Amino acid sequence: MTASNEAAIPERSLDGCPVGTVSVLRRVEATRLRRRRLAELGFVPGARLEVIGRGGVGGLIVAVDADSRVALDAAGARELRVGGPA
C-alpha cells in the first residue's frame, strides 16, 4: 500500500471495531501520561492491532503485533485511532 492509499483510509476509534478486525494504530488521543502508559503496552503508531474479544461493558481484548494480549476499558479503546488492514 502506498502512502497516498494509506491517507485515503478513514480513521476510526478502536472501540467501534468488531471482533476479528485487524488494523494499524494511526495515533493515540490521550494525555501525555496516558500515551506513555499505552506505549509501554505496545500501543504505538504503526502497531498492528487485532480485536480478539469484547467485555461486558464495552472493553476489548486486543492482540498487539501478535506478541501480546491486552485488555482495554471502553475509554482506552476510544483513545486509539486506527485505520485500514495491517
Score class of each variant (00 low, 15 high):
D67M: 14
L60E: 01
A39G: 14
A3N: 14
S23R: 07
F43A: 02
G59T: 10
G55S: 13
F43S: 02
E40K: 11
R12L: 05
T31C: 01
D67F: 10
D67C: 14
L41R: 13
E79W: 11
L38Q: 12
G16I: 00
E50Y: 05
V64A: 02
D65K: 11
A63C: 03
S13W: 00
R48F: 02
E40V: 09
A47T: 08
R37L: 11
V28A: 01
I9P: 00
V24T: 15
L72Q: 09
I9T: 03
E29G: 01
V82Y: 11
S68F: 00
V24W: 01
G55P: 06
V24L: 04
G84S: 05
T31G: 15
T2Q: 08
E11N: 01
S13D: 13
G42P: 09
I9W: 01
I52R: 12
A7C: 00
L14K: 05
V28M: 03
R26F: 01
A7Y: 00
A74V: 15
L38N: 10
R48D: 06
R78H: 13
R37V: 10
L14W: 07
A86K: 03
M1W: 01
A7W: 03
L25Y: 08
S4V: 14
R37W: 06
I9M: 07
P10Y: 02
A66M: 09
E11C: 02
D67N: 12
L41W: 10
P10R: 10
A66V: 06
L38R: 09
L14A: 04
R12M: 05
I9A: 06
L49T: 04
E79Y: 05
A77N: 07
R36C: 10
V22R: 14
S68H: 04
L80I: 04
A63D: 02
D15F: 07
D15C: 10
G16N: 08
F43L: 07
P85Q: 12
T21R: 06
G46W: 12
D65P: 09
P10H: 06
S13E: 05
R48S: 10
D65T: 09
L80M: 11
D65A: 09
G20H: 07
G53H: 13
G20P: 06
V28I: 10
R48G: 03
S23H: 00
E29V: 15
D73I: 13
T21W: 01
A71S: 13
V70T: 05
V19W: 07
G42T: 06
D73P: 03
S4C: 01
G20Y: 09
A7N: 01
L33C: 00
F43K: 04
S4H: 08
A77H: 08
G42S: 07
I52Y: 04
L38H: 05
V51D: 02
V44K: 13
A8I: 00
T2H: 10
P18E: 11
R12H: 04
C17V: 05
R26P: 02
R26C: 05
V62D: 03
G84H: 03
S13I: 06
R81L: 15
D73K: 13
V44Q: 13
A71V: 13
A74E: 14
T31L: 06
V70R: 04
R37D: 10
G46R: 07
D73V: 15
E11P: 00
R36Q: 14
F43Y: 08
V70I: 09
G20I: 07
A47M: 06
E29R: 14
R26W: 00
V28P: 05
L49N: 06
P85K: 11
